[in-house]
Design a protein around this nucleic acid. Structure first.
Lengths: 145, 145
DNA sequence: TATGAGGCGACCGAATTAGTCTTATATGCT
DNA sequence: AGCATATAAGACTAATTCGGTCGCCTCATA
């Protein structure tokens, strides 16, 4: 209902792993998958999606693998999640493509759109480097009620 | 992936409807369902769940229906959503019931737990009365990164 | 006491998500 | 050159979740 998909979860794990091993060798999908006990095939799929969005860069061939394409502080949780699962929309009718029959009657669309904005703002405030740090300074996010 | 279920959506619609018709008659499930073009059966299910969590109160019998059990300002979006879909957990392993095999290896659980807290905080800041108002003053939410 | 309302659980089909397989392509090493 | 090792991509299947329906029950009121 309001859950991250496993793939997105795996994506965050992979990106964090790469962040911890940067300036070292490229990590292969197999290497990362085995480290966390995840199916190799599936991890490969996830990394491919991240590569397509230029969050990681891939190196073919022997001793190849993946490297972060940006600084960990420049990669947000939102980047990773939406690279894998597509845009984050808490309701399917937020974009208003007419697929919601009750669109004109629906009285909650506008308020939910604002809640959606707030969640995007939370997710884009958290970066991979935040996720690797130990100290956690509070950050204020402006929420449009 | 990161979406409200339709049931939760319908729940918010119903609660907002009740908020707009308080001090009037009790609204039946059928009445609300028809107003927004939603299946009567399904709307009934949703209202039953809301009643079980004491968000709305039900009146049996002829000219019965549902009434809000609290002030609109005392009902948060989180109340409604979790009444219908259960606790809001962005990952299934947040509660750590051992169902995630990689729990000990998983390096993102703690950061995600904090993101989850922030989302809860957003959802519990938005009340039904907020959702009915037109003006939207920004509210600051403290986000634990 | 008949009628109109909610309460609850079982159930089914559809949609989404998780995970696998296969084939193609690129790279490095010997 | 040729082989081993990687990624790339899409088709495919299995598993799970979700949306929606139905039937039977209880309760309250006209």
């Amino acid at each position: 209902m309001f859950k991250l998909s496993k793939k997105a979860d795996y994506g965050l794990i992979a990106v964090k792993h790469l962040a911890m091993h940067r300036d070292q060798h490229a990590c292969s999908a197999t290497e990362i998958a085995e480290e966390y006990g995840i199916s190799t095939m599936l991890m490969a799929k996830v990394l491919q999606k991240l590569a397509r969005q230029r969050i990681v860069s891939a190196r073919h061939g022997a001793s190849g693998g993946y490297l972060l394409a940006k600084e960990p502080s420049q990669i947000t949780a939102l980047d990773v999640i939406s690279a894998i699962d597509g845009p984050v929309l808490i309701t399917s009718c937020v974009t208003n493509h007419g697929n919601c029959g009750a669109a004109d009657k629906c009285s909650v669309r506008e308020p939910l759109r604002r809640v959606n904005e707030s969640i995007l703002s939370v997710l884009s405030t958290v970066t991979i480097s935040h996720m690797s740090e130990e100290q956690h300074e509070p950050v204020l996010v402006e929420l449009q009620t």
